[in-house]
Amino acid sequence: MNKYIKESIFKVLMVISVFIVMAYIVIIIGINVVKGGIVIINNPSVVFTAPGPKYLLGGEGGILHAILGSVFMVIPSTCIACVVSYLIALFLQVDYIKNNFSNKLRVVFDVLWGIPSILYGIFILNILIVTNRRGSLGAGIITLALLQMPVIVRYMDEALNSVPNGIRESAYSLGATRLETAFTTTKYALPGIIAGALIGMGRAMGDAASVIFTSGAGNSMPKGLSKSASSLPVLIFQQANSFYPSVREHAYAASFVLIVIVIILNTVSRISSKHFQKYTSGSGK
């Protein structure tokens, strides 16, 4: 076969596959915007009202409990996970341990990232059973923190890794301790660190499999750390399995809200990493 013919065949194939990928994205976002938008425009109160007692059985009410539940669960868990992951990433980077050992630890975190999220849920659920408690907002927060920790560690680690070695060396040569050196390198790695935190937050926001066991997944507003709560993905899952068409319609509204939050997180992470770029080396303006 002529090499130019082969070239054009493969080029066509590549364009087709790019179109397939794009079609998936456009269809998913399109469905959410159109169907979710219609539900919300027809009945804006869906987003702002608490659900009635029989909401999932076709009763009246809205999805406010899930929105609030998601927010109350994701924000504290991200804060916990960020602090923990930041310390872990520093530990992997700064010269507290030998390089060889930190590479082995990285493999451990890769494994943690790969564990299906449902296993985190089962682990926490078992602790709940042993200690004789029920699913609650607090348990959901802990699950989500565990779930997003490996993601954030990986991103922070990569960000700290990309800091030029000269900065570390010059900090040491000025007599800084390892901790102070670590804080200096942090400043240079800030865009990556923030992006990592937001990506972890996005993962926690969208995960249903772990929360469905641990947060109680009830039909009530989140009232306290030890009370049951729901979250948007869990609610969407319950709504999509419902027999009532009106409940299924509401799933698109919930998914619209969820996807808007996720896209906002994505954009903010992009903008903030551009904004903080001025602190990184090489852009000495």
Binding site: V21, M22, Y24, I25, I27, I28, I29, I31, N32, I199, G202, M205, G206, D207, A208, A209, P233, I236, F237, A240, A251, Y252, S255, L258, I259, V262, I263, L265, N266, R270
Partner: peptide, 18 residues
Amino acid sequence: QTFIDVLAGIPSVVFGLC
């Protein structure tokens, strides 16, 4: 690449729903 990142961030329940 932004589009691909968005696709990566879409929660799995939304995939199921669509």
